[in-house]
């Protein structure tokens, strides 16, 4: 899971990083959360912040994000939870650009999936392994 700079280091610090972990572990199971290091307040920015996504310096942005992509690929995880819109957009692009192939999901998607209330049209960012799992009202697929 990504520790968004804006939420963790720049706002509420390690206590909210622990809260995020409580939520993610509750959803996926403690044994399925693989940490990146450094993390929490000492994390690396993904490169999506500060307006970088819209600044036009795409090559520099992807180069900036290589550190984050390496961190994620090192975990070997299939999914990266990014509870920040900028992080989500940037890391999603990093996965495609560097060929890591990991999925990048919003926290709300994982919460609703675990509660069994995630409909067929709310799964844009799930991979094929979870796309068909526990679908809420499958008959409403568009």
């Amino acid at each position: 899971m990504q520790d968004p700079c804006q939420i963790v280091r720049k706002s509420y610090g390690d206590p909210i990083a622990e809260d995020l972990r409580f939520v993610v572990k509750s959803i996926v199971g403690e044994e399925n959360l693989i940490e990146m290091y450094p993390n929490k307040s000492n994390n690396y920015c993904c490169g999506g912040g500060g307006g970088f996504l819209q600044s036009g310096y795409k090559d520099a942005r992807l180069s900036y994000g290589r550190l984050k992509d390496n961190q994620i690929q090192t975990t070997g995880a299939d999914y990266c939870v990014a509870a920040c819109h900028n992080c989500h957009a940037q890391i999603h692009e990093l996965s495609e650009h560097y060929g890591g192939g990991y999925q990048v999901v919003h926290l709300w998607t994982m919460i609703c999936l675990s509660l069994g209330i995630l409909g067929p049209n709310e799964r844009e960012y799930l991979g094929d392994d979870l796309k068909e799992v526990n679908i809420f009202h499958p008959e409403t697929a568009m």
């Binding site: 700079c5 280091r9 720049k10 500060g50 970088f52 600044s55 310096y57």
Partner: peptide, 14 residues
Amino acid sequence: DWVWMCTMCQRCVY
């Protein structure tokens, strides 16, 4: 133009 490549993430301050 590096000022547009720094994301002001504050890790340097940390």
